[in-house]
Every structure is written in C-alpha cells, then in structure tokens.
Design a protein around this nucleic acid. Structure first.
Lengths: 211, 211
DNA sequence: TTAAAAATACCTAACTATAGGTATAAAAAA
DNA sequence: TTTTTTATACCTATAGTTAGGTATTTTTAA
C-alpha cells in the first residue's frame, strides 16, 4: 500500500472548483495524486486513516468554518500542509488562517502557474500567497499585528443593539446601565475596530462575521 | 470553416472555474466546443466576429457588470443564450439577469449533472436554474411583491459612502453636492428602508445584499 | 410630449454621537 | 494571590444626525 506520490486533498463545496483544481494539477499528475471532499467532516474522517501531504482548503464550507477545520487538521496531523483557498479578500481571514496553522492563502483567481508555485513553496516549508493575496497582506495594516478585534461579551451585546439602530440611551435602559457606561463600551468598540463611527463599526463587524 | 458543434463560451475571471467548467463539459466534447474569456470586453470582441450558441457568464467580473454584459450580448447577438453564473445568492441579482435577457442562473455549487441539464434546457429555449438557485427564486420574498427596496443610483452611491463611515459633509465634498442634498438622499433612504437611523439602514442594506 | 421619478437644494430645532479624557470595583487569568 | 481584563461610571465640548417640512430642475418613461 505504499504511495510515493504527493497526496493533495482538495476541500471545496463547489464541484467545479474541485474539477478546476484537479485539471490544473493534471500536468503534474506524475508527482501529485489528488483526492477531493465537499464537506469538512468527510475529510477529517479520511485524514484519520490516510496520509495527506497538502490540503487546499476552501474557507467557506457549508458544514464547518475553515479556521476551525484548519486547526483540527493540524491537531490530527501536524505535518500536513494547509493552504487556505477563498474568494474572501479580508486580511483578517488570512491572518486567522495563518494563526490556525495554514502555510499560506490563495485567492480563487489564482493563475495556474501561481497555484503550482505556491504548492511547491508550501511543501518546502515556506509560507506562500497567491499574487493578489500577497498584495493584500503587504498593505500596511490598520491594526498592526493584532488583526481581528476581540470583543468582550458586553461589547458584543452592545454591538448587536447598535446594529438594531438603538441609541445609547435606549441600550442603557435595556441593559439597566448608565448611558455613560454604554457610551464607554461603544467608544471601546470604535477603538478596537479602529473606526471612527458606528456606521464603520457595523460594516467592520459584518465583514468580520461578528454580526 | 463550418462548425457543427455547439459553441459554449465561458466568461469568468477565475482560471480554476474555467478549468472546472471545461472539465465538466469534457464528457460531452463531441457536442460542445468551449472557448473561454477572463474579461467581458474580450468576449464582446469575439462575439462580434464569431457565432456563439451559449454563454456561461460570471456575474462578478473585474471589468464590467454581468448585468450590463448580458444586455450587450443580447444586443449584439439576440439568439445567443446566456446563463448567469455566480456565487451570489441574491434574488434581486437573479431577477436582474433575467430582465437583461438571461435564460437562467446557476450558482457555482452546481453539480455536474445539473450543469449539463441546465445547458440543454436553456438551448431548448427554456428558462433554467440550478437546484439552489431554483430554491431561492421559489422562496416567498419578505417584502411582498416589490421585494427589495429599490434605490436609485445616487442613493446607492450615498449608501456606500455612508457604509464607509463618511459624514454628510464628506460625502457632499466627494460628490460635488450640497450637504443638504446628501442629507435629503439619506433621509429618503431611511424612509425607503423604513428605518430610523444610519446604523439600521446599513444593516438592512447588508441583509438585502445591497452592501 | 407630457407626466412621473430622480436629483438637486434649502430651513430650523432637537437630538445623538464622538473625542479625549479619568476612575473604581469586580471578574478572570497568571 | 497578584496582575490584568472587563465592566462600570463620570465630565466637557464639539461634531454630526434626525425630524419635519418645502421647492426647483433635470431625467426618464409612458
């Protein structure tokens, strides 16, 4: 049962993306063997019983979040290389993937050449990005290295009420707090998200899937 | 120079989607010949000099909007069948495509079988949707029959700037308008969405996929 | 070629949010 | 058990939004 090819697993819920990736990898069929999954949990079962050298992992799967799946993969098999794959161009998503153990991030508009290059780089232990992803990562970050704003329970609660268009006063009444306290929480949210008003705050929260 | 195969053009800016579609169509290679483009305008040039039976058109292209491109295709060559192709699950987008002359709409998670079925149906003059797209179209819309609040171009523009956290004054400067005018537009938006402040407005817009 | 819709612009007053602080008690983590 | 984080609350002033109007011009559709 010895396998001398490099095993690449593709996890994506779009059959046409799977086909596309397989097709792009076909010229290297002598080196790479591919296997594909449309659900994260299916892959996890597979991984428990098989060796996988590299995973091309779509971030937005129907069953589990890409971030969680990536962590799980690295937990089960630390030597398996994970490359994130997504249409989402948010820095924060890329950073979260890296923190979860991914070796790089490809946007779905990756060119065939880039794809092969990134796979090779990643297999050699490098961190690798597709052209556009690199560009996004290279942009100076507003938030330095802390990426995603981590908010407290109270802040989350207030964020949700703000999203309902409630005023500081209304939120204070609802939560039995002083309006001044609610105001402080809102100010802290603005700081954490590095935005200057509620409108921007909400959009940032939506982008980071907090709302 | 006679061509007896059915010519299918694929327009998508993601090489891997193009590969995927070609690969899915390969079993029918005796019937279908494919040609692909990553930019809308490239295809328009092609279409002016060649016959194309069916177009698989990605809605979100870098150069032009899918809606506009669809209209243009039907103007140049009314007999060419257009099938919209997208990740976007908004009803309104699907409706707009149909109004622009498309014969159907496929979500990118379409299965290989569905893809072939939809292509055949469309070539036979039917309106055709992928499974999930059909489901979305079949859902009762929450806004009665007028569904999504219809907003004007100017309002959309202002909505986007509001989402960036810009103030009335800043928007006015940017659009060379009086702040009073911008304010009026914002007030009209609040009315149309039946909300009372910008925060609610933005969340409603996000829900209706206008942002 | 009209009628309707969209875009423009104005007014006033009341209300609400934002900037830039400080400070203390209660939970949670180290 | 000490340190850090979270949650609480306050102050002053300025900036910006919202409510409730009216009104003209320019486009678009019938």
């Amino acid at each position: 049962m010895r396998q001398d090819k490099i095993i690449i697993a593709i996890i994506d819920d779009h059959p046409m993306v799977i086909e596309g990736l397989k097709s792009l990898l076909k010229p290297e069929a002598a080196v790479y063997a591919t296997v594909s999954f449309t659900r994260g949990m299916e892959f996890i079962s597979f991984l428990r019983q098989n060796d996988v050298n590299l995973v091309l992992l779509d971030i937005s799967l129907p069953d589990v979040s890409g971030i969680e799946l990536c962590k799980e993969i690295k937990k089960i098999s630390p030597e398996t290389i994970v490359l994130g794959l997504s249409n989402q161009t948010e820095r924060s998503m890329m950073l979260q993937m890296l923190q979860s153990g991914a070796s790089g991030y490809l946007l779905k508009n990756v060119s065939p050449d880039e794809l092969l290059t990134c796979i090779q780089e990643a297999l050699h232990g490098l961190i690798s990005f597709s052209r556009e992803a690199k560009e996004i990562m290279g942009r100076p970050s507003k938030a330095g290295l802390n990426e995603v704003a981590s908010i407290t329970k109270r802040e989350k609660q207030i964020l949700e009420l703000l999203a309902q268009g409630k005023t500081t006063a209304a939120i204070a009444t609802e939560l039995f707090l002083s309006p001044l306290t609610v105001d402080t929480h809102r100010k802290n949210l603005l700081q954490k998200f590095e935005v200057k008003n509620t409108a921007e705050l909400l959009m940032a929260a939506v982008q980071q899937k907090l709302l």
